[in-house]
Amino acid sequence: MSVSARSPAPGGGDAATPMVLAEGLHKRFGRLEVLQGIDFEVARQEVVCIIGPSGSGKSTLLRCINHLEKINAGRLWVDGELVGYRERAGRLYELREREICGKRAEIGMVFQQFNLFPHMTVLDNVIEAPIRVKGMPKASAADLAAQLLDRAGMREKAAAYPRQLSGGQQQRVAIARALAMEPKLMLFDEPTSALDPELVGDVLAVMRDLATSGMTMIVVTHEMGFAREVGDKLVFMDNGVVVEVGAPREVLASPAHERTKAFLSKVL
């Protein structure tokens, strides 16, 4: 595979560079091959939904993108920069922790289990990273947090602790917390899977609003309705490979592959 052929400009930032680009991505956990050669691209302002059976590597792919997992082979760029490494004269150098943290700070992530910090109030959850990581003054962080919580419909809960909130409310706070870092890319790892059915809608509404505002989003989800209405692209993964990519309506209505058909027949 030629890496240099596409070799995106270091620094990235221009509109032509894809936000995320993966080539031949492999990830092993011990003997288990979780990702077996993923080629994947997300353009700027695109909303890409990833579906697939559990164990297909969807979450792992997401976690590779912000370097929570190290890839074993292949190349992965975010905004034109290699994830986790620097390439010089054909050799890869691991990045320092500082540099990795700097890059993670530009990528928001929302987890299935929310992972709000239970010992902090909603407001403190949201302002913690802007203050401690970006060095934002407390007052402006609080202003930003108020705006974001407002957008998520959670402003009146700013003083509450996460355990006093419902799952849907917690997830909306988690989205606000990720947005407070003003990321250029948002990763959603099954954001509604741990929620009671009647709470899912509120979270999806916040995500839909975010998509409309032009945020680049990668969403691992089982919400086919959301994928159909909001997604620009639908990726079906199985057994660590991308089986099918296409416009959500087409993939959902007339899947090209047998495996996609079999999966969709079970979940739709």
Binding site: N66, L68, E97, R98, C101, G102, K103, R104, A105, E106, I107, G108, M109, F111, Q113, N115, L116, F117, E128, A129, R132, V133, K134, A174, R177, A178, M181
Partner: peptide
Amino acid sequence: GQGEAAQALGMARGL
């Protein structure tokens, strides 16, 4: 997940 959430926000290990 707590450590992961913090890492994902760009917080270093010590922090």
